[in-house]
Design a binder for these strands. Structure first.
Length: 321
DNA sequence: TAGATTTGACCACA
DNA sequence: TGTGGTCAAATCTA
């Protein structure tokens, strides 16, 4: 591609933004639809307590769709930050008001993925070679922890992408990114700095949150509703997408669809002060340790999800106005 | 042979 | 301008 062409295309950042916005809108609408369907399914299930296997399958399927919708949205926002667009230049494909949005039909996954693919191809074909180009991790969530192992098992797959001698450090620093960076656009990275040799001590700094879904066959959703129709005790909920790990997810920075590394120590301490030592910051996903303490019902959970999607969607559309 | 690691080069930022 | 974070070709390994 010639330089003049490159310049011409780079002028059209507004078009890029509109394409991304349209895709994100569709993704949010799709997620909301799936969340609504799941909520309805749960309500129906409560009144009609049969065919549990089948309904568990549908729960699983719908929940996966909701989660992937969130993940795709986050991934897009991380990957392609949106610039403000003038009202006059707003896309004709964007609905003008919330009512229109409510009427929108969620796109089929194939449609969406082909659009994402098309957009990625568009970006790839129009951007110059930016080898070595990157944005430093300002304003990113970070936390550190120290351990005796260089690669503490934290439930995520990491790939080493760099190693560097750091000025004031005795040992080299290793750089890791999420294995799913390219396939799912997951932005999570970590740096492991060796602090001392004997005994070995490493400081791991995590950057950003995982948006990868990483839903494989080993991952599962275990749903244990009421023990019986007359059981008045609260239900037990345990969602896990990776049953290979000893520790339940606790870190709010991480995608709920994956397990996470231990939370930042400071956050954990603050959290203990706030709500007591045994509680988890995760509002939903781990209740297996205390079956009698589950005061979160599925309907509430789905309402939270739908509202979250709604907020994101309307906030997103409002931005464009 | 595919996926992971190594390592020199590139580039943003302080 | 030096430092640190990232990229990507080369190399390694299962």
């Amino acid at each position: 591609m010639s330089n003049s062409n490159m310049k011409m295309i780079k002028k059209d950042d507004g078009d890029d933004d509109r394409i991304i916005k349209a895709i994100i809108e569709e993704e949010l609408v799709r997620g909301r639809e799936f969340a609504n369907q799941l909520r309805q399914l749960i309500v129906i299930n409560k009144t009609n307590n049969n065919n549990e296997v089948n309904s568990a399958y549908h729960h699983n399927h719908l929940l996966s769709n909701v989660i992937s919708s969130f993940a795709n949205t986050l991934s897009l926002l991380n990957k392609y930050p949106i610039h403000p667009i003038n009202q006059s230049s707003s896309s004709s494909s964007s609905p003008n008001n919330n009512d229109d949005l409510m009427q929108m039909q969620p796109p089929q996954p194939q449609q969406l993925h082909s659009r994402l693919l098309t957009y990625d191809q568009h970006i790839c074909s129009t951007q110059p070679d930016r080898r070595g180009s990157y944005r430093r991790k300002r304003n990113m969530e970070t936390w550190t922890e120290e351990s005796e192992k260089e690669r503490e098992e934290d439930g995520h797959q990491w790939r080493k992408y760099g190693q560097k001698a750091i000025q004031k450090e005795k040992y080299t620093r290793n750089y890791f990114r999420c294995t799913h960076k390219y396939e799912q656009g997951c932005q999570a990275t970590k740096q492991v700095q060796k602090l001392q040799e004997n005994p070995p001590l490493y400081r791991t700094t995590y950057y950003g949150c995982h948006t990868c879904t990483n839903l494989d066959t080993n991952n599962h959703i275990l749903i244990m509703e009421e023990d019986g129709p007359n059981n008045t005790s609260s239900s037990s909920i345990f969602l896990s997408f990776d049953n290979s790990l000893p520790n339940p997810p606790t870190n709010p920075f991480f995608s709920s669809t994956t397990t996470q590394p231990p939370p930042p120590k400071m956050m954990k301490e603050e959290e203990d002060k706030e709500v007591g030592p045994s509680s988890s910051t995760h509002p939903v996903l781990d209740d297996s340790s205390n079956n009698n303490n589950s005061n979160i019902c599925w309907e509430d959970l789905m309402m939270m999800m739908v509202m979250s999607h709604q907020e994101a969607l309307y906030g997103f559309v409002d931005d464009e106005k």
